[in-house]
Design a protein around this nucleic acid. Structure first.
Lengths: 345, 345
DNA sequence: TGCTCCTGCTGAAACGTTTCAGCAAGGCAG
DNA sequence: CTGCCTTGCTGAAACGTTTCAGCAGGAGCA
């Protein structure tokens, strides 16, 4: 008859009482610091098990000085590129003794700000924003917090703010050169610049610059290119883009900015009765896992998840914030690109 | 010269001092409860902005009675089924004023236990475990915590423990009947029972029972079936399964337990020079987003993400734990299934 | 024996909020 | 003018840990 609320969470004091030791000793056992004898440890462990004690995260973190928590924000977990990247970062973080708190923005700048806000309240030790919808407001939030931060393709680094610059330009150049060397002269470039924000602009700019540079550098003059802007980041938009573009005119190669869009492009081409790569070649960006399993396997520009996650952790934990980190890209030539058809009727 | 640590996080007391009000008032403004005049609110807001104050999550939650936090554990975010489900649950949770803490197990029972442990430390208001590797230990952990919990396809519900039973049996029966009605008599059933745990067993059992029941109920006697166990949940395993199985003998239809595996099956069949569905029909489970974009579009058993997420929230927040909830499945016939080939040479 | 060092433990302060009883002041009915 | 209600604010207790100075007691050494 010691009190009758059986569902109350036992606290550290209850454990201490049952084990016949003090509060501080239990804490020492829990955290494996301080000096404790094996006998005491055993008694405490028994008491913990008997009571079903579980440490309270909030009290624990409140009392601690610092957190081993990293925040990671991505656009959308449905996109395999982000899912794969998130997993890679999580693994790298764990390897270095950090926990990861993962949030998605669904391509909404407002959700991005809310996510940053929440993560900052959680007193994260570092923040990685790997989305394309970061704008000046969200960057300012991160900057003013003083928390080590890394953005993808966003602005100038400074103070606590690092930036990872994906060499999209180089990747794009490689992709275009690959197509040109295969004889292609009619190129359709499919992009999605719907949520126009700083970072997205920059990211597009790089790709477009790579595209333009490759075309400029190319000796052939009879090059015909068209850029098509699609209204979303999904496969549906890619499919419609192809349907629309090919209605007017015939291309022999399509370049997309993500594998997911390429998935739609595949479907669009197939429904037009065009085969890949006999009639039309397709190149993409991301090298998501499924791209290898498409029919035909998709030629795509790889962004190394391992390198990316290592850069993220380096940026956040090196103690030297404000870095500009560069990430190489490499074109993976698979089976979706081939010689320009002899008779592109 | 008031102290020289500029990077120290401002606390609620600093805000109160700057705004010329008391601690409690600032808290009232922050939480929009209690009575405050517009003038005071404005002063407090200014002070917050000036100082760049941000609430400390841990102190806040420690002082609060309860959390509006739900824990969601899935197997692997790389699998689109889980990514889509997680997103659906997150949206439903948000709609009901809950935040979601998302964790992945990577198919490891140990990681599952660690995840449950962490979530319980965070004092979650409910726990949903949507993975196939839940075992009796993890179920016991959840049960003993007293937190409203829902598992997918795991054991008998009771006390705080609810269970969602996906009608895999029905879905499988529909898939098999569909194939049989198309004339197929040589069926390859591809499953992955690698991490054999209670829930996985149950889940397999259901599917296998559905398979067996459909075959038993079927009048045709010349039915030939084979079950192949693959060593992993990925597309690679699916591809190898086809390569292995078709080496020995020819099937006219393949049934897989997930779309991801079907992706590998597609590739395997294509590399064998077999076309879908002319030579071989394929049916799968999950209806992930990409399955619609495959060539040909994949016939698959749909598990409604909306229904699933609503069930999850109902189980966790209805105040009536210990429920057994059933989730219907529906076969989506697309283009990967067709008449059995006239001459399956 | 006296001194120092080490080990294992204790007890209280600190972490930054929320919550709530209580109080001052003003308005209003009688 | 009195009594009572309402509004807007205050101040302190509580939340459940971690951390750390300090203390008792035993060992080692001269």
């Amino acid at each position: 008859m010691q009190g009758q609320a059986p569902s109350a969470r036992p606290k550290i004091g209850d454990v201490a009482q049952l084990a016949g030791v003090s509060l501080g000793t239990v804490s020492a056992v829990l955290n494996q610091n301080g000096r404790t004898s094996e006998a005491t440890r055993e008694r405490v462990r028994r008491a913990i098990a008997d009571l079903g004690y579980r440490r309270d995260l909030y009290a624990s973190q409140l009392a601690r000085r610092e957190t081993r928590l990293l925040g990671l924000i991505v656009s959308n977990l449905q996109n395999p590129f982000f899912a794969e990247t998130a997993q890679a970062v999580e693994e790298e973080a764990e390897r270095q003794g950090f926990q990861l708190s993962l949030m998605a923005t669904d391509f909404s700048p407002l959700k991005l700000r809310a996510a940053i806000s929440r993560l900052l309240e959680a007193r994260i030790a570092g923040l990685a924003v790997l989305t394309s919808e970061s704008d000046s407001v969200s960057i300012a939030m991160a900057r003013e917090s003083g928390v080590p931060t890394v953005f993808l393709d966003a602005g100038k680094p400074g103070h606590s703010l690092s930036s990872i610059r994906v060499d999209a330009r180089g990747g794009m150049r490689a992709a275009v050169n690959h197509l040109i060397s295969l004889g292609h002269r009619d190129l359709l470039y499919v992009q999605n610049s719907q949520n126009t924000t700083d970072a997205l602009l920059r990211s597009h700019l790089q790709r477009r610059q790579g595209f333009a540079a490759a075309i400029r550098a190319c000796c052939v003059s009879e090059l015909q290119t068209e850029m098509l802007d699609i209204p979303g980041p999904g496969a549906e938009a890619g499919e419609r883009a192809v349907l629309t573009a090919f209605q007017e005119r015939r291309f022999t190669a399509v370049i997309t900015m993500t594998d997911v869009v390429a998935l739609g492009v595949y479907r669009g081409l197939q429904s037009l009765g065009l085969s890949i790569p006999q009639d039309v070649s397709v190149v993409s960006f991301d090298n998501t896992h499924f791209s290898h399993f498409l029919h035909p396997p998709l030629s795509t520009v790889d962004i190394s998840r391992g390198d990316l996650s290592r850069l993220v952790l380096q940026a956040l934990t090196s103690g030297k914030p404000g870095q500009l980190l560069r990430l190489r890209t490499t074109l993976l030539v698979r089976k979706s690109t081939g010689q320009r058809p002899a008779d592109p009727a």
